[in-house]
Design a protein around this nucleic acid. Structure first.
Lengths: 124, 124
DNA sequence: TATAAAGTTCACAAAGATTGAACTACGGAA
DNA sequence: TTCCGTAGTTCAATCTTTGTGAACTTTATA
């Protein structure tokens, strides 16, 4: 990881790639933490915040997938690799998508009592 | 497949599950076709429309994943299994998400010339 | 230089995807 | 009813992807 990390150009970011990157609960949680941390977060810190007993090699792989999908950008600061969400690029490419997905995530994270009860499980 | 197919209740539909189901290019395309077909589509028809040389067992698996994620509902009509997007349930659970994702998909499917050119590949 | 911290890469085991073949379900014709 | 064709599912084998510990690289500091 000596040279600058490869980040896909905006035009190379695909919807399926983004959805794939976000389709993992751990990565979804990481990105939420990143969105809450404008200054960026490194691997170790993200792991600590999420309280996940995850080996650092696994975390590294998750970060790589997020990076290659175009979701995050990473830069070295000292020994750390600090990452942040590429909000500008994503907004340009797919306006509103990120807000929508993480709006849904916040909604899901709310305890059930804070939402309107929806008892009927109508199919359709 | 004699008994009614299992469809998750609205409350059991998770964001990560939906994203996972949509994270595959084939499934993304299938769901778009379904969204365009209010009367529903069966496996064979969807395969034909997408022009994919995909074995029917593979298509069946994709439909199963879509069904188990809560994205689609399927019902038997004669020998066919007709499926449609569970728009009402999804809107109730995650308002705006489906529109946002498939808005992004349509945007991506447009030829590049119809979008504003974005030459600079700024990271971030 | 030596030591430590932060990540990456490698290699292997475990889990998941793809697909042809065999099977089930249904409808229609004889 | 029985037989046949169509639509999908399930099974099993193969292939691919993911998770992980160990070893390695990079940077900083004593």
């Amino acid at each position: 990881m000596s040279r600058p990390l490869a980040h896909p150009a905006a035009a190379a970011v695909t919807l399926a790639g983004l959805l794939f990157a976000l389709a993992d609960p751990v990565r979804l949680a990481i990105v939420r933490e990143l969105l809450r941390s404008p200054a960026g977060l490194n691997c170790t810190e993200a792991r600590a915040r999420l309280g996940l007993a995850m080996p650092k090699s696994t975390c590294s792989q998750h970060y790589r997938i997020l990076r290659e999908s175009g979701l995050i950008a990473s830069e070295r600061r000292g020994t750390e690799l600090v990452s942040h969400v590429r909000a500008q690029v994503l907004t340009e490419r797919f306006p509103g998508l990120l807000e929508s997905v993480f709006g849904a995530y916040e909604r899901e994270c709310q305890p059930a009592g804070r939402r309107r009860a929806s008892r009927a499980a109508a199919v359709g």
